[in-house]
Amino acid sequence: MSVWRVILSVLFPPLAVYDRGCGSILIVLLLTLLGWIPGVIAALIILNRPKYN
C-alpha cells in the first residue's frame, strides 16, 4: 500500500480502490455516502488485503 493510496483513501475513498473491482468501489461508495469515516475505514481495509487476480 503506497502513501499516495493512503492519502487518496482519506480524501476520496472510492477512487482509492478503483483497481480492486466494481464490488469494492460500490461498497466503499455506499459507506462513504453513509458517513465519511466508514468509507475511509473500508477503503483502508480493502487496500490492506492482498490483491488476487
Rank of each mutant, 00 (worst) to 15 (best):
G35K: 10
Y18F: 14
I46R: 07
L11G: 00
C22L: 06
P50T: 09
A42G: 07
I27T: 13
V6S: 05
A43L: 01
L33Y: 06
G23C: 03
P14A: 13
W4G: 03
A16T: 05
I7W: 12
Y52V: 14
N48H: 13
V3A: 05
C22V: 07
N53D: 11
L47T: 13
P50D: 14
G21V: 08
P38A: 09
P13G: 06
L31F: 15
G21M: 10
L34G: 14
R49P: 00
L30W: 04
V28N: 02
A16H: 01
T32L: 02
L26T: 13
I25H: 00
L15K: 04
V3E: 08
S24C: 11
K51D: 11
A42C: 14
G21R: 05
S2H: 14
A42S: 14
V10D: 05
S9Q: 04
P13Q: 07
V10T: 04
V40N: 02
A42K: 13
F12A: 05
I7R: 09
Y52A: 15
K51Q: 11
I46G: 00
K51I: 05
R20Y: 13
L26F: 14
I25D: 01
L31V: 11
L11C: 11
L47K: 07
N53Q: 09
I41E: 04
L31G: 04
Y52H: 15
V17F: 11
S9L: 04
L31C: 12
P14F: 09
L30P: 00
R5A: 10
P14N: 06
C22H: 02
S2E: 12
I7N: 01
L33A: 14
D19P: 00
M1T: 06
N48A: 14
I37N: 02
N48R: 11
L44N: 05
K51L: 12
W36I: 05
K51W: 08
M1N: 02
C22Y: 04
N53T: 08
L11H: 03
L30G: 12
S24F: 01
P38E: 07
L29E: 04
S24Q: 09
I7L: 15
A16E: 05
L15D: 00
A16Y: 00
S9E: 06
V28G: 06
L11N: 02
A16M: 03
N53R: 10
L11W: 10
P38I: 12
L29C: 10
P14S: 07
I7C: 06
I37L: 15
V17Q: 06
G35A: 09
G35S: 12
N53M: 08
P50R: 14
L15N: 02
L15M: 09
Y52L: 15
A42H: 09
Y18N: 03
I7P: 00
M1P: 01
T32E: 03
R5C: 00
G39R: 01
V10Q: 07
A42P: 09
I25L: 10
L15F: 03
L44D: 01
I7F: 13
L47Q: 13
V40P: 00
F12L: 13
L30H: 00
A43E: 04
V10N: 02
G39Y: 03
Y52K: 15
P13L: 05
Y52S: 15
P50H: 10
F12W: 13
V17E: 07
I41P: 08
P38L: 08
S9W: 03
W36S: 08
I37E: 10
D19R: 11
V3S: 06
L8C: 07
L29M: 11
L33V: 10
T32W: 10
L44C: 02
N53K: 07
L11A: 15
